[in-house]
Design a protein around this nucleic acid. Structure first.
Lengths: 337, 337
DNA sequence: TTTATGGACGTCAACATTGTCACTTATTAT
DNA sequence: ATAATAAGTGACAATGTTGACGTCCATAAA
């Protein structure tokens, strides 16, 4: 005889009503106990006992619906959490958020504007208290309504487009200028420029800074030495190889981010080339590389800190006009070749 | 005459009631349109127009309260998001979660059991659909009630204690055994063992594996060569220095994690020592180190993948007994000295 | 003694949405 | 033509909590 399988009783979660019944007090008294409002000693005891017996936990969803209180949640939109740059941002943001008693929902756009839009919309539907965004897309006007409706948004590392909002950025142009100038100061005249996707404003700024440095030194830029749209380290390696095979190869390279720097470095190392190299972005272990590396460094933690604190100011009610903060970079000289 | 500062009208967010009034339909019809349930063409048009005009976004808080539906949120508790190991876990978990239409709330315990407990409690109050936990504390019996009440929990990298739940772990003992055996096979008899806090089960397992390897090779373990409680890379460096200064220094080192490996490597490099070195944990750029490094590697992504998929099985209703999965490690031989 | 005063506790509505059910109208089968 | 069905729409309750307000009783002030 087969018995009907007894579906393990998925007990309904106890609510304040259950606790109230068990402790023989009113619902409201349970609410007061849970929220540390004044209640007589004896009742507190009964209620706490009932809570313990039932394993009651206040439902923050209901709490948040009823009271106009904050959600204690902010959304962080980045490109990809596995990237140390973004992991650092997430770490600092989470730390500051925790100090404000709030948690972080982190989502990765993977550089896909459509995904970015969907994720930001999801965040707003979840009624997060604020948004920290490293934008991927080129247009953020779709957030305007949200901002008007009071959703605080702070952009980070890249500026918003089509939207007036707080932003905390790096001095990409200045950093790039300094990096390339360091090479020029050493007498280099043919400098290979390795860059990522030019659709990213950050990258355009870095290219502009490099060009400005060349210009300032009176060096006419050789367009054949500029390689854009490089993503993976291997692509940078191949670009270095191609440039070194030119009839008039560059004697120095400038890489616009650390992935490219590592790729370029490996290729130079493989070839035994003594071309000089400066990279944008410091990275862990850079000092242990086959050769010491001069890099344009910046303080990622500071970037995240300033942005997150701005966000919490906004959440606290600051409604002064949006500002853009540009953080300095610095040249970390560890040798050029 | 000073005028009372007109507090910028913080417009109340529009609700379905507002939309309904504007579109001159019932509240329920708006709900239906928003949820893609069948509604006549004309009304759909009116409702969508009203939604666009008002900038309405469904309040997922209220939605979730009313419908017994899932929250589309899972909690991830790790030690520290800035650590690449955990960042990788977060990345994979977020990716798989996204495939299930859910988001991740990530929080860092920073190895503090009290904080861990508080964060997990917060997660449960937020009514997340499930919990992914890299435990810090030594006792998780406080989660038992939650598990009984139907909260799916999967432990990751470290086993739960005082609680029967799913776990996905690494073969720490086997990996350590293989790493130390590799050194012994090269003829080394004095092996320095560098380890972290012995309160972490993972570390104890790694020590046990190392001891087992020594034992299997008939080498009596010299306790003075075992250094525990090492956290920062610098501590590993100092430990290496101290060991090398012994009258009978070790000829080889085994480091129980990559932070220690880097610290030890730097000290060996600084001294020009040719002592052999094997580390637990691979790390990016290991192949670019001053010397190629043999490491005990494992697949962090796979660890996270298996754990997250297990969690979503549970969320989908799988109520078979909890299982523990142990994933293999492998020795990545890149040279010993 | 009478009347304020205040603290402890309870009742009821409200938050924004979805589930249930009933009603209307048009369409199909008899 | 009539009944049965189906599809679209609305009214109302329910979700679990907190805010507003009212009641009761003990105590202090008049």
């Amino acid at each position: 005889m087969t018995q009907t399988p007894t579906r393990p009783t998925v007990r309904r979660r106890p609510t304040m009503v259950d606790v109230a019944r068990r402790a023989d007090v009113s619902l409201k008294t349970v609410s007061r106990v849970v929220n540390d409002e004044p209640v007589g000693q004896e009742l507190v005891g009964r209620v706490l006992a009932a809570i313990a017996e039932l394993g009651f936990r206040r439902n923050d969803i209901a709490r948040n619906l009823r009271s106009r209180q904050l959600n204690a949640t902010v959304g962080l939109l980045i490109e990809e959490i596995a990237n140390p740059f973004y992991a650092t941002i997430a770490s600092v943001a989470a730390e500051i958020a925790a100090a404000h008693g709030t948690m972080l929902i982190t989502a990765s756009s993977e550089e896909d504007p459509e995904r970015e839009r969907a994720l930001l919309q999801d965040f707003t539907q979840r009624r997060v208290d604020g948004l920290l965004v490293v934008p991927a897309g080129l247009d953020h006007s779709f957030l305007r309504r949200e901002v008007e409706l009071g959703m605080p948004v702070v952009f980070l590392d890249r500026p918003p487009q089509g939207l007036h909002a707080d932003a905390v950025l790096l001095d990409n142009r200045g950093g790039s200028h300094a990096g390339v100038s360091a090479l020029l100061d050493e007498g280099h005249r043919r400098v290979g420029l390795l860059l990522g996707a030019p659709s990213v404003p950050t990258i355009r700024e870095r290219l502009a800074g490099a060009r400005a440095a060349l210009d300032a030194a009176g060096v006419a830029p050789d367009e054949s030495l500029i390689r854009e749209r490089l993503i993976a380290p291997e692509e940078a390696g191949r670009a270095v190889a191609a440039l070194l095979d030119l009839p008039e190869p560059p004697t120095a390279f400038f890489c616009a981010n650390n992935r490219l720097t590592v790729g370029a470095l490996q290729e130079l190392h493989r070839r035994g080339s003594d071309a000089a190299l400066v990279g944008f972005d410091d990275f862990e272990l850079a000092h242990l590389m086959p050769r010491p590396l001069t890099v344009v460094a910046y303080d990622t933690r500071e970037l995240a800190r300033v942005a997150t604190e701005r966000l919490f100011q906004r959440i606290a009610g600051d409604d002064t006009p949006p500002t853009t903060t540009v953080l300095p970079t610095r040249l970390l000289e560890r040798g050029l070749a």
